[in-house]
Amino acid sequence: MKLFKGERLFHVFNNLFLLLIGFLAAFPFWNILIMSFNEGRDAMRGSIYFWPRKFSLEAYAAIFNESSLMHATYISIMRTVWGTLLGLLCTAVLAYLLANRELILRRSMLFFFIFTMYFSGGLIPEFMLIKELNLYNSFLVYIVPAAINVWNVMVMRQFFEDLPPSLAESARIDGASELRTLASIILPMSTPVLATIALMIGVQQWTTWFDTYMFTSGTKELATLQGVLVNILMESQIQSMDPVQASRLEQSGSILTPEVIKMATITITTIPIVMVYPFLQKYFVGGLTVGAVKG
């Protein structure tokens, strides 16, 4: 198609504007990344924007030598792996069961689940419940209460309902059990929605700090990377407002500052996500919009 002169101008400006948006989205990540590779005391002088001034791996060396941080990383990985596996399994089975149009009391059943999406008991009763169930200060508190997210179940149920019903039907006629039908017929056809939900659960598990804060007493054994980051953040905020602390740091002569440790920790928590999500992009974009176009 031939472009008018005005059209061409529009495209140039449009592309430049979008480049600016892309830059704004990416710059903070880049800035934090290069700061984490800069020497700490030098970084305090400021004006480091696109490239480290004094390259240093001290911050990472300090983190990898700090056993509590390594343990927090381990806990974060464990909760993400187990949480995602358990969550995906529960979501898929429940979504499949609810996708059955013949289900007895289907409307009431759906209402029973969907109502919890819009009404919750609130923070305090949940806290009491976790204490009553003896989940307080246990690793299970990270994965069990999060095993079913009704919102995710409804997204997956919608996907299953849109699959041709004859497939499951023919499997049942051949004598396959419910779970067998799910595992061998439905799931292999559901990669987009499975990848989307797995990504959602995984990101949620990896990034949440709230359950560590609420449901553990702050013991080192259950600290997660995000929890450690919250502590570092709070501490650095207090320090930056406290002149005594700052001058003490000035005199100590250490090239490490809490600021670069913060940058390095942020980088470590962010990198796994940055490495994973672009590859799942085609799935989650499809998984999220399946209904929008038809609806």
Binding site: A25, P28, T207, Q226, L233, S236, M263, Y277
Partner: peptide
């Protein structure tokens, strides 16, 4: 551009706050 634009969605508010404290700092540099 689309891929880059999704990036901020996937990080926690802890990280966003940590970034904001550095990038929006009162320091004139």
């Amino acid at each position: 551009i689309q891929t880059v634009s999704y990036l901020p969605h996937f990080i926690s508010w802890v990280v966003v706050a940590g970034m904001a404290m550095t990038i929006l700092s009162i320091d004139e540099l």
